[in-house]
Amino acid sequence: MILKIYYLSKLYLLEQIRRQVHLVTLFLAVILLMLPAYVNSFSLGLSAFERVAKDFGLTLISFYAVAMAIFLGVTAVSSDLERRTLYPLLARPIPRWAYLMGKFVGVLVVLVSSVLVLSCCLMLSIAALAKFADGQLIVVALCYALEASVLAAACIFFSTFSSPPLAGVLGVFLYFVGGLSQSFISFFLVEDRESPAVAMLARGLKMVMPHFDLFRVKNAVVYTLPLEPAYLLSITGYALAWMLLFVLLAERVFARKDL
């Protein structure tokens, strides 16, 4: 069965490569590699550059990962459904959960590999100036990849019961509400806006959603603080649990669907 999931992901990956999805990644990679060129044009000091570059680069990577996650997650199954390329595949002796798993693994590989490529580019371009390769950058970027993967799984789930545009909107909503940090809610909604009702709603919604804010550990690397391995391990477990949940939910909906 694992072999069949592998073949399904392979099919997905080959198709994505033929659709030249990886060129987007390449384009961003080039932008990141060019970062040193900005030092002179903005007359930054090195330390400031390092911080700004890390901040900017990681933000770029996180936006990219999220956008890719929503796009890939929403299209993974629905494009097969709409083009009806699903029929010959599901006529093969594979259960539907394996089909979904294959798609998800494919999306996962695209996300993780492109985030890896991008973060390596960022690391290189910073190392080119600061003469110091900060491996933590990659760790932080991988946390973003984890976040994006959970989001992609959610989008796959959404796309099993709604149209692609609606699934995309749901994905964006999940990302924003699930990504609100507790301190944001208390600071911005309660202290500043004095709207505890909205804060309550946000807290309530957030409670049943994946807490995307847990994955955002960018400041640790921007301000060169250590990241606890225990924490990294815990968010990895957390992400895996959510991914599995979304894929299982998607399977439950998908299994009852008339294609």
Binding site: S181, S183, F184, F187, H211, L214, R216, V217, K218, N219, A220, V222, Y223, L225, L227, E228, A230, Y231, L233, S234, I235, G237, Y238, A241
Partner: peptide
């Protein structure tokens, strides 16, 4: 937020495991 985040993360893994 950007200044306090690293501290929020400390010792939070227990909570994350609970959610997991």
């Amino acid at each position: 937020e950007s200044n306090s985040e690293p501290f929020r993360l400390k010792g939070q893994s227990v909570l994350v495991w609970r959610d997991t």
